[in-house]
Nucleic acid binder design. Structure first.
Lengths: 204, 204
DNA sequence: TTTTTGAGTGAGTATTAACTCATTATAAAA
DNA sequence: TTTTATAATGAGTTAATACTCACTCAAAAA
C-alpha cells in the first residue's frame, strides 16, 4: 500500500501553503497582470505542473487569495459590532493591533492591498465575490461610523461627520499599508496615538 | 507643399494627448501588466501602429506618464518650502486643493496611484527615474515635517512626532485617492476639517 | 490636377506566458 | 523486491499580446 490519506493530505497542504505565500507576495508586489505563473512556481520551489494540479487557472488562485483576505476583514466587523466595550477602548485596541501588524510584517498590508486590487476594473463586477467584498466593506464602514457616533455621545470623540471620519480612518490605514509595502523596512509606522488623534479629543 | 511644421506638430500633440489620457486611465484602473496596448489604442481611438509611432514601447509610454505625475508632486514641495505663510494656513490651503481635486475628478487620484505603481517591484530600482521618485518623496515628507514642527512651535498644531505625522498625512491622502478610484462617484471625500483634524489643536 | 510629406492604418510576425499531459519519483505496505 | 496510489516534473502546445512595416490617406501648395 502507498502512503495513507492523511500523509497525502499533509503533502498537498504543504505545497498549497508554499504556493499561497509566494503568490500573495508576487501579486501584491507586482500586480496580477505582471505576475506570471512560472514565477509563482519558481518562488514556491515547485513545478508549474504541480501548481496547476492545485489551481485550475491563475485567476482561480488569485480568487482564493482574495477570499482568504476577505475572511480577515470579516473578523473585524464582529469585533466592532458584538462588543459593548467603550468606543475609545475598542478603537485603541484595534489600532494597536494594526500598528503592531504593520510594524512587524507585511501580512496585513498584503491582505489590504490584495482586496484593493480585486476591486479594480478588469474584475467581474457581477461576480459573487466582488459583491461580497463591496458589502463587507460597506458594513465595516457603517459599524465603525456607528462606533464613532457612540464615542461622540460619550464626549470622548471629536465632533464631525462620523461616516466621513470612518472613511478617513480606513483610507489612512490603507495608505499606511501601501507605504509599508513600498518602503519595506525603511518605513516607520506612525504610532497609534498619531493614527487615532483625529478621532479622540485632546487631554492636556 | 504639404502641411506646415506647425500643423504637423499640432496633429502629433493631439494624438499624444489622446494616448496620454486613455493610457493613464487604463494603467491606473487595471494595472500595468493587465493593460494591453491594443486597449489603449482602441480607447484613444487610434491604431496600434500610430501609438508605436509615438512611443517605442509600452514601458516607455508608462514611464512618460510617471514622469508627468512626478512633475505634479514637485510643484508641492516648492509650495511648502518657498513660502513663509503660517503653517496652518499653508496646510489648510493644500488640503482644500486636494479635497476639491479628489471631489471633482480622478486626475489627482490617478497621479498618486501611478506613482505608487511605478515604485513597486518589477520596477528597475537602479533607474534614474526610480531614484528621483524616491528622492522627491523623501524631500516632500521632510519639508512637510518641517512645516509641522513650525506649527507646533506656534502652538497651533498638536504635539507628536512631526515625521510620523507627515507620513500619516500622505498615507491618508494616498488612501483617499485609492478609495476614490475604487468607488468612483459612490465615494464622498471626507471634508478638509476631518483630514486636517489630527494636525490642528481643537478650538471650542 | 499633381506632387509632396508625414500622419495614420492594421494584418502579420515574434515573443511571451498560460496551460496540458505523458512520464517519473516517492514511500508505504504486501 | 514488487506493487500501488498519488505527488511531482517540465518539455511541448496553445493562446494572447507586444511590436513591425508595407501601405493608404489627407491637406497644402505648385
Amino acid at each position: 500500500m502507498p502512503r495513507s490519506k492523511e500523509q497525502f493530505e499533509e503533502m498537498r497542504k504543504a505545497t498549497r501553503e508554499k504556493i499561497h505565500s509566494s503568490a500573495m507576495r508576487l501579486f501584491v508586489h507586482q500586480g496580477y497582470g505582471s505576475t506570471n505563473v512560472q514565477d509563482i512556481a519558481d518562488t514556491a520551489g515547485i513545478s508549474i505542473g504541480l501548481l496547476y494540479r492545485h489551481y485550475k487557472t491563475k485567476e482561480e488562485l488569485f480568487n482564493e487569495l482574495v477570499a482568504y483576505a476577505v475572511e480577515g476583514l470579516k473578523r473585524n466587523i464582529t469585533f466592532f459590532n458584538e462588543s459593548d466595550h467603550p468606543p475609545k477602548k475598542l478603537i485603541t485596541q484595534f489600532v494597536n493591533e494594526v500598528y503592531s501588524d504593520l510594524s512587524h510584517g507585511e501580512e496585513l498590508a498584503n491582505l489590504l492591498i490584495l482586496i484593493n486590487q480585486s476591486l479594480l476594473a478588469g474584475a467581474d463586477t457581477t461576480s459573487k465575490q466582488y459583491k461580497e467584498i463591496f458589502q463587507v466593506n460597506a458594513r465595516l464602514l457603517d459599524s465603525t461610523a456607528q462606533l464613532i457616533r457612540k464615542g461622540q455621545q460619550c464626549g470622548e470623540f471629536r465632533s464631525g461627520d462620523a461616516q466621513e471620519m470612518a472613511v478617513f480612518f480606513y483610507a489612512s490605514i490603507q495608505g499606511l499599508a501601501e507605504m509599508k509595502v513600498l518602503f519595506k523596512n525603511n518605513f516607520t509606522v506612525p504610532s497609534p496615538s498619531v493614527i487615532t488623534s483625529f478621532l479622540f479629543k485632546e487631554r492636556e
